[in-house]
């Protein structure tokens, strides 16, 4: 019994969760039928306008990239202040953990809608939303890495009287940096997809065109955009995965 506890818990949670969504097998099959009809209408994909909206593909990539970088820069101090290994002041740890959790609690589409409300329907709204989104994830991952790094070098730095900033630079950073870069690439991969999605609420990029074509019932054009996005994402994922593998060995 005890041996099967994890499996039973998993099954239990699965049943409980699926009841909540109201999805049942018949409904799912029925849904598949609708989906099939929808997919049929997407064929053949109409690539005639892809080159015209190509700048918006590039814009989506740029949004994803700049948001990842700025998000990572913001995440770094947050994680350093949240981790007990790097900052030994408990109330500061608590405050910054709360902030990091808070950022991640807001769903990305809600972030995007809020940003659109604040900055208008344009790419900067998307970039702001994505930056916060990136900061939440990278901050959380980096915080967990810092919590689990080897304490030895940090202790040695304390013992020889190194100031706080030097402890971080020489005690924690060399251990956390390869991981940090890995997280940035990983979040960049996610961000390309999210950057396309936030376009749906008007926050700039290729998602805007998907939304427009969708509303006009131009499913064949939507299909072309999806296929192109898929190709772009695949290429970037492949490159990024390679770099991440190399970093893991560093």
């Amino acid at each position: 019994m005890r041996k099967h506890l994890p499996l039973l818990t998993f099954l239990g949670l699965f049943i409980w969760a699926s009841l909540g969504t109201g999805v049942s097998l018949p409904k799912f099959v029925e849904g598949l039928g609708d989906m099939g009809r929808f997919v049929k209408e997407m064929f053949p994909a109409d690539f005639s306008e892809v080159s015209a909206v190509w700048p918006d593909f590039v814009l989506t990539l740029r949004m994803a990239w700049v948001s990842t970088l700025v998000g990572a820069l913001l995440a770094y101090p947050f994680a350093l202040l949240a981790a007990g290994t790097t900052t030994t002041w408990k109330s500061i740890n608590g405050l910054f953990r709360l902030l990091l959790n808070g950022v991640r609690t807001v769903p990305d589409l809600l972030l995007a809608s809020l940003a659109v409300a604040l900055f208008g329907a344009n790419p900067s709204a998307g970039a702001v939303a994505l930056t916060l989104f990136s900061m939440g994830i990278i901050g959380k991952l980096l915080f967990e890495t810092l919590e689990s790094i080897d304490q030895g070098p940090l202790e040695a730095m304390t013992a020889l009287g190194a100031p706080w900033i030097a402890r971080l630079r020489y005690g924690a950073l060399p251990l956390a940096l390869p991981q940090f870069l890995t997280y940035c690439l990983y979040v960049f991969e996610i961000n390309i997809r999210v950057a396309a999605i936030v376009g749906l609420v008007g926050a700039g990029g290729i998602g805007v065109w998907m939304n427009i074509n969708f509303d006009l019932g131009q499913y064949q054009k939507v299909a072309a955009l999806l296929v192109t996005l898929f190709l772009v994402v695949t290429v970037i994922d492949a490159v990024s995965t390679r770099i991440r593998k190399a970093l893991a060995q560093a």
């Binding site: 040695a156 730095m157 013992a159 020889l160 009287g161 100031p163 020489y170």
Partner: peptide, 28 residues
């Protein structure tokens, strides 16, 4: 800064060079 401490498990920063590790002694 005026007291050196030597640990059983060395507590060096393994990812940095030997030279850099020695220099960290001056961080304070």
């Amino acid at each position: 800064t005026r007291i050196g401490f030597i640990f059983q498990d060395y507590n060096l920063q393994g990812r940095l060079s030997v030279l850099q590790n020695v220099l960290t002694g001056l961080l304070g």
